[in-house]
Design a protein around this nucleic acid. Structure first.
Length: 356
DNA sequence: AACGCGGGGTT
DNA sequence: AACCCAGCGTT
């Protein structure tokens, strides 16, 4: 038995029953693949069901608004995925009359679809002979063949893609690709891999040389930036003052609260004295209550967040600010920390959340 | 080639 | 705290 036969047989007997594996519909597979980019299966699963229910085909997706998509995407992170999907859905609806393409060369041109995703959709949907290389495959290949080239260097990416191409089973590329990823997810795990029950342990360089902890090799990532975000909760009757974020920075085009960012750890009461605050809130602005700082961790940023309840007579609205009914908050896509704060605040009005 | 982009789970 | 997750787009 060769490598591919071993893992595909193992896969057939041990695979998880995942909803996107029961179809060859390119639209459905596209949906699942974008959701699963840098996202664990368990985390993406409920979003997959939700999106499929709201948008059962590409025409339905194309008809959605960006606000709709971002709201449904809320909590999943990497929101550009959702915005890129909308671009792609609208293009596909025009260009291919609502039939999602399943050929690599067409897929790779679409926004949000890179080498991995184009290979995944084309091999799963049309059995096209393109090898997938995701985080799982990097790990399996590095260990099995003893490849110590960093997986995130340009040279490494090329080498791993070539290696994946070399061992691809051309008789059933879709099955082979699924098996590679499943092996990485279930057996060849990052920590404490289950080498004892691995179908290809005989022949695995890392297993034979007790080197699973050294492989794969990955170049150091950049350091985390600290930011201090001071959010203001300003109400007017049953309305809340909200902010629509721009295209730069995190949480593009999503909704949060009026914000003043400071370069150093601030005293919330002094933030209100800053000229920027005085300009918009007036010098008579009064701090009612403060909670924070809360720490919100992103991959490359550590956010220290203050929430400041403010009362003021003369608010001067910035262009991106608008009042909205509390009832309408459920329609706005917000970063998790904002969503949780507002949910708690308006659920426990008399009991300020996160006070410390 | 390097960087930016979320949120959550595991070790 | 470090690392990882069915990566991709921009600079």
């Amino acid at each position: 038995m060769n490598f591919s036969n071993e893992i595909t047989q193992w896969y057939s007997n041990n695979k998880r029953d995942l909803p996107w594996r029961n179809t060859t519909d390119a639209y459905t597979i596209w949906l699942s693949e974008i959701i699963l980019q840098q996202t664990r299966v368990e985390q993406g699963m409920p979003y997959f069901y939700r999106f499929l229910e709201h948008y059962p085909n590409v025409a339905a997706f194309a008809a959605a608004s960006e606000d709709d998509i971002l709201k449904l995407w809320q909590g999943l992170g990497y929101y550009s995925r959702g915005r890129n999907m909308l671009t792609t859905a609208r293009l596909v609806n025009e260009l291919y009359k609502g039939t999602f393409p399943n050929q690599y060369e067409q897929l790779i041109k679409l926004k949000g679809i890179g080498e991995y995703t184009a290979a995944a959709i084309s091999s799963f949907s049309a059995n096209e002979a393109k090898a997938v290389v995701d985080g799982n495959v990097y790990r399996v290949l590095a260990r099995y063949f003893g490849i110590s080239e960093p997986i995130n260097s340009t040279k490494g990416k090329k080498l791993f893609q070539e290696t994946a191409n070399d061992i691809l089973n051309h008789d059933n590329p879709g099955l082979h690709n699924q098996a590679m990823m499943e092996l990485g997810a279930i057996i060849c795990k990052p920590k404490s891999p289950a080498c004892g029950i691995c179908p290809v342990n005989i022949g695995c360089h890392a297993f034979l040389n007790n080197a699973t902890t050294q492989l794969p090799v990955k170049l150091k990532t950049v350091k985390v930036r600290e930011r201090y975000l001071n959010y203001f909760l300003i109400t007017d009757g049953e309305k809340v003052l909200m902010n629509k974020r721009g295209m730069k920075d995190i949480w593009a085009n999503m909704y949060d609260l009026p914000l003043i960012e400071t370069s150093e750890k601030p005293d919330p009461y002094e933030v209100v004295q800053l000229s920027e605050a005085v300009e918009y809130f007036g010098s008579d602005a009064e701090v009612i209550e403060v909670s924070g700082p809360l720490t919100h961790i992103l991959t490359h940023q550590r956010l220290k967040v203050n929430f400041i309840i403010l009362k003021s007579k003369g608010i001067k609205l910035k262009q991106e600010w608008f009042y909205t009914e509390v009832e309408n908050l459920k329609n706005l896509a917000m970063p998790q920390i904002i969503f949780i704060f507002l949910t708690n605040f308006f659920t426990f009005k008399n009991n300020f959340p996160f006070s410390n």
